[in-house]
Amino acid sequence: MNLSANTTLSVRDPWALVPSLGNLDAYITAVNRLPMLSQEDESQYARRLRDEGDLEAAGRLVLSHLRLVVSVSRQYLGYGLPQGDLIQEGNVGLMKAVKRFDPEQGVRLVSYALHWIKAEIHEYILRNWRMVKLATTKAQRKLFFNLRSMKQSLKSGASDEQSHRNTLSASEIERIAQDLNVKPAEVIEMETRLSGGDIALEPQTDDSEESYAPIAYLADDSGEPTQVLEARRRDALSSDGLTQALAALDPRSRRIVEERWLQVNDDSSGGKTLHELAAEFGVSAERIRQIEVAAMKKMRKAMEANA
């Protein structure tokens, strides 16, 4: 392919070859239509990027390998993560590969970029596939990404009864551990984690089971600033605020309120009744009720003023 003669690749902005798209299927269709580069063109663009820092040349290299990222992303759909996110992370790996690619090494960019694309996708899966980090060491990561395929391989060569078992046998665990250079206990632990299902923190429905969603009993609001301030305010109102509100009443109103609401009889039945206070003050029970209502309103205003 002659660089100067190729009108498709002579556009100043290489990203203009990918139109503005609204969905993943349209994006995949578009990148699969982008032209591939010959080895000669690839080497020329790589040298221009390396020697001159030519970003247009970098764009050509990236565009011509976007279909590779799409192809690699399909291998990781079994982890339940959006393919669009997998492609996005793979594109980051592709750009890192293009930046570091040396055309003098005698290998094609597709071979060199494959490692970087997979590395970025692996990191994304480990960060997002489960809330708890699954793999930390290099051996554990290898176990994480190979356990499923190895299980399928073992099941395919087993008898019908063995192939229908969901769990690994002791011999299968030992074989996987030897092949991947990990401990059998690590294989068992990884298998347990991979087979465990995710639980939504938020309730999925509006029915009576909503209160059983984990968010209902895992959340701790005790340290939340507004909750702390509200608790302090309630404490202040229940002590100093109440004392000040009672001080705003005349002696008769204060005694009625205290006897009705702030005293406990020996039988734990609460304060005095309206009729008991009516007999004490020599008025009707209805009059005691009116004094009580007026006193409560006055106390409420006093507490609101001090809040």
Rank of each mutant, 00 (worst) to 15 (best):
A302L: 05
S64N: 12
P35Q: 02
F144M: 12
N265I: 07
S111F: 14
K96S: 13
Q290F: 14
S10Q: 08
T8I: 15
V182Y: 09
L134T: 01
A185T: 10
Y45M: 03
T192N: 05
Y217L: 04
H122W: 00
V228M: 04
P251K: 14
L218S: 00
L66I: 13
N181D: 11
I215G: 00
A231V: 02
V107W: 05
D267T: 15
Y76L: 08
G90L: 01
D198S: 15
E209I: 09
E42T: 12
G78H: 10
V92W: 09
S239C: 06
V92Q: 11
V182W: 12
S153C: 13
I176V: 06
E40Q: 09
V228N: 03
T29N: 13
S10H: 04
Y79Q: 03
A216S: 15
R33F: 11
D25L: 00
S211Q: 14
L37M: 09
Q140I: 07
L218E: 01
T167Q: 15
A97E: 05
L66P: 05
A177P: 06
Q162L: 05
E89K: 05
F144K: 04
E191A: 08
V31L: 03
A200F: 13
W129P: 04
G271A: 05
D54C: 09
N306P: 06
Q178L: 05
Q244N: 11
N181R: 12
D240C: 13
L274C: 07
T167F: 07
G106R: 01
E209D: 14
L9N: 11
P225N: 04
G197I: 10
N32P: 01
E191L: 08
G93T: 06
L201F: 02
L61D: 04
Q204A: 04
G106W: 02
D25S: 01
R289C: 03
G59S: 02
S73Y: 00
T226K: 10
A5M: 15
E120A: 14
S71N: 15
G270S: 00
G90N: 01
M95P: 04
I176T: 00
R233S: 00
M303E: 09
S71F: 13
G282V: 12
S163E: 13
P184N: 05
E42H: 04
F144S: 05
K301C: 06
M296P: 11
L154V: 00
K272C: 10
L49A: 12
R255T: 15
L242P: 04
G106C: 01
A279R: 15
E286V: 12
V31D: 00
G197N: 10
G78Y: 09
S43T: 11
S222H: 00
V70M: 06
L63D: 02
L9I: 08
R130L: 06
A248E: 15
L277V: 13
E40F: 06
R130S: 05
E209A: 11
M1W: 11
L249S: 09
G78W: 08
D25T: 01
V110F: 03
G223S: 01
E56A: 10
T192D: 11
R100M: 08
G197W: 11
E40L: 10
Y79F: 07
L63T: 07
Q178H: 02
R260L: 12
R255E: 15
E104D: 15
E104T: 14
L143M: 06
V18S: 13
S4K: 06
L201N: 00
K133F: 07
L77A: 08
V92N: 13
